[in-house]
Amino acid sequence: MSIIQIQDLKKYYGANLVLKGIDLNITAGQIVGYIGPNGAGKSTTIKILSGIISDFEGTATVMGMDVRKDALDIKQKIGYIPEQAALYDVLTPMEYLRFVGKLYNLEDGIINTKSNDLLRLMELHDKADIRMTTFSKGMKQKVLLISGFIHNPEIIFLDEPLSGLDANAVILVKEILGQLKKNGKTIFYSSHIMDVVEKISDRIILIDKGEVKADGSFEELKNNAHLGSLENIFTSLTGGSEQHQSTAQDFINVLKS
């Protein structure tokens, strides 16, 4: 059953066409890795599906609801975690989660209990009442992750969720995503960390310059491209491999000169 459907999705920023007619069907309960180079259109797609951007061409539905018409109903049922760890850091984690919880219309008791438990699981319980101005990027990212999950969404959109996290936290997030999938949740996430995408995704979609370049499971992509790793597939499909080698060689030559 398709939980996300996109047809001929186009998005202009001024005269610049960043999404050039994307078609996608995402099945419920999958982890979808959405990868591509910088400026490929990953964040724009996620913002459209999350109901944040509404001026686009084509159609997009989430859980059968139109993202233009039913954006509020969609927002209630999805979780979105942006790329930048942007939050009001003069608040404490507890205060921030209470603020976000209220925006999702959650009751005080539920917010407090869940915040407590999730902060403890993310090893931030001893910092729950400390203002986040002194937090590292990874600690803020953890608070953001909790704020995206606190209302128990059906679909979770994550834009670079692992950025700034330490190795243990990356493993924890990977496990959490796996458990969410087992509980029937759909996860749509973009990342630059290829080995994580390779390991946890049921399906990998690679976009470049606003177009889908490859779509399938890691095994399917590997067989089609006859390449061993997702990183190699990525560089091959985005035309980077030879160029990177040549640039690296030029770099060394300049250093020697």
Binding site: L72, D73, P82, D89, F99
Partner: peptide, 16 residues
Amino acid sequence: NENFTASWVYLSSPLR
């Protein structure tokens, strides 16, 4: 606010 980018949360939450 200097952290004005944190206001993305208004756009992503179901505020009627």
